[in-house]
Computed example of a mutant assay.
Amino acid sequence: MQHLQKGEFFGQTNKTVHLNNLVLTDTEYTKPTVDWHYHENAYFTFILQGNVIEGNKKEIYNCSPGSLLFHNWQESHYNIKPDGFTRGFHIEMEQQWFADADLDIHLLQGSTNIAHPDIKLLMYQIFRETKIEDGVTALSIQTLLTDAFSQLNQIQKNSGKAKPNWVSTLDEILHEEFANNLTLAYLSASAHIHPVHLSRDFSKYFHCNLGEYIRKIRVEKATALLSGQKMPLAEIAYRCGFFDQSHLTRCFKAWNGQNPSAFRKMLLHS
């Protein structure tokens, strides 16, 4: 089984950024199949464009734009790339980085498919920082990544605690039906919880209010769709549940710091 060293990924690397105990790479996947292998360090894979299938000893992930995976070090896996252009953004972290950030990497075992919109939006912000490259880029990436791991660790800690069944049921509904005109009556009935209890306890498990969580999902889904060069912004707005293109632009800029057109230009021309 092949052992990949720091900063080494299969395919054509378009750009590499080295920071203190971090390596960030923008890589085009060029091989149709990659046999079982593992990496020296823990890392994120964030799919920017195209599709890839990634398998490990426990699960198989069908990844599309916006998919985010975390692999702990020396976690073996393989890849299959369907026809077409596929591009990934990798953030590799040496063990010293976790020590310096006072983060417990042992809470994150194996491979994880991350669906939480907050963490995905942080990944897009980190990617954007690699394109700015000014005097605060390194500091910004360090703080964004530390925030992402802090949230991921909290999610892992909470996953071991008993939660009401409605929490996971509701999260699945929100991720599947985010573009629909959802109502409190519909959500509470679908999750089998009283509307008052849902309204009162939602923030306890999701760390924001219900409306804010839905907006985060919509923005994250819209960001992933921007990798499609031919899809008009008005269609993206419709698919993601926004009233119109202007509504999409306002919400997108609030979370990503720039409008959708500027983000698409940065993504596709970098």
Rank of each mutant, 00 (worst) to 15 (best):
A262E: 09
K221W: 09
V17D: 05
G241M: 04
R87V: 00
T86Y: 01
F202H: 01
F98I: 13
V167Y: 11
D83I: 05
K131R: 08
T16A: 08
K57P: 01
H39G: 06
L187H: 03
I132W: 03
L225S: 06
F206N: 02
H197T: 15
L182R: 10
F9Y: 15
L233P: 00
L268E: 06
A162G: 12
L233F: 08
N113A: 14
A115M: 14
K204A: 14
W36D: 10
F70V: 05
L226Y: 01
N79P: 01
S246L: 11
N56F: 08
N113K: 13
A189P: 02
M1C: 09
L122Q: 01
L108Y: 06
L268R: 05
N180S: 14
D26K: 00
I217F: 12
R239Y: 11
S261P: 00
F252V: 01
H194V: 07
W255R: 07
L145W: 02
F202G: 00
V17R: 11
C63D: 01
K253M: 09
S270T: 08
A185S: 13
L24M: 12
P32L: 03
Y186A: 10
V167Q: 13
K81Y: 04
Y186T: 09
I155P: 00
S64R: 13
K6C: 07
V196I: 15
P260T: 04
E92V: 06
E220N: 12
A224C: 11
C240L: 11
C240W: 03
I53R: 02
E177W: 10
H197L: 15
E235T: 14
L68H: 03
P65V: 04
I155M: 15
E212F: 09
L187T: 02
T130Q: 05
E75L: 13
K204N: 15
T223Y: 02
H71A: 11
Q5L: 11
S270L: 02
D100K: 15
G110R: 12
E94S: 10
D26I: 01
K216A: 07
L121Q: 07
N256T: 06
F46M: 10
G7A: 08
M231H: 04
F10M: 09
G257C: 04
C63P: 00
F149W: 15
P82W: 05
D134M: 08
V219T: 04
P164W: 13
T86C: 13
G66H: 07
C240Y: 03
V23W: 10
E92K: 07
L174G: 03
W36Y: 11
D244A: 03
P117D: 07
E8V: 12
P117S: 08
E129W: 01
N113Q: 13
P195L: 08
E54K: 07
E28D: 11
A115N: 14
Q74L: 14
M93C: 14
E75T: 15
T33R: 04
S270R: 06
I217A: 09
P164L: 15
L108S: 09
G228M: 08
S150D: 13
T143H: 11
L267T: 00
Q95N: 15
Y124A: 01
I80E: 07
S67C: 09
Q5W: 05
D244C: 05
